[in-house]
Design a protein around this nucleic acid. Structure first.
Lengths: 136, 136
DNA sequence: CTATTTGCAAAGTATTTGCCACCAT
DNA sequence: ATGGTGGCAAATACTTTGCAAATAG
């Protein structure tokens, strides 16, 4: 990685991600950009998101249907934490769970596992959607 | 679902899954079947695995590269538990983590989420692979 | 006998890549 | 000027589906 250029496309994508605050698929992001008037090739969206993911600028989550979804979290300093994601509306809540960290390392040690990954993001139904869903 | 027939293909797939004990992709399962001499169409493998997943006979995990992987766990009575999966060799360890359950429901309550899903399977590196990897 | 299941190939979806024009630096 | 970038379309990878032939019960 020698040079990273600031282009209209990258600025637009970064800007959109900041506004979203929820996990979104590349397709959704692409669509949202178009609706804003930013016409960017889908391939570029993918390339940019991949690059941002690799450099840690966005978090990637594989949703149940096998799509990659992307989220830009804390604008700047982002410490390790997890998310509750609403299955219906996509609303995302950041959670700190120090106990979870402890638990994970305990499990790892106990079974001789190292480098335990736990991009643990829980998927559920948020209050608003639960109410709406109850009517269903 | 009116009738479920026992066919050569389904028997073979179920049998293989029992022998495996590790998360495997549909492709891998298909290949393994061929090597055993069971010639089954890939589409059939997918159809069967999907059916087994839906009826809860197998657990599905979306691996980092976006493939569905399938595992048949406890031969019979399987209670709720989680897995440690080795990133390298695929070795799987079942773990009970009552604290995790508690933690999850605590988080859910705290933030008003319901139906919190946590097919939490941790991906790490097991002892054997860690040793092997150290040589790398 | 007949409804379910299989196999094949084609279709579908998500993502990546090759290549050339283009623009930020 | 010039090398990183973007757009397009073709390629790839995984999975699903339509339909006729095979088969379990």
């Amino acid at each position: 990685m020698i040079g990273q250029r600031v282009t209209r496309q990258r600025t637009a994508i970064a800007g959109l991600l900041d506004d979203l605050g929820e996990f979104r698929s590349a397709k959704q992001i692409h669509l949202a950009l178009q609706q804003r008037g930013d016409d960017i090739a889908l391939a570029t969206v993918y390339r940019t998101l991949n690059a941002m993911a690799e450099s840690g600028d966005v978090e990637v989550l594989l949703n149940p249907s096998g799509e990659h979804t992307y989220l830009r979290c804390a604008p700047t300093a982002s410490h390790h934490h997890h998310h509750l994601v609403c299955r219906h509306c996509g609303r995302t809540v950041d959670v700190d769970a120090p106990q979870l960290e402890e638990l994970v390392s305990a499990l790892a040690t106990e079974h001789g596992f190292t480098e335990l990954e736990h991009s643990v993001d829980f998927v559920g139904v948020c209050t608003a959607c639960a109410r709406a869903g109850a009517a269903r």
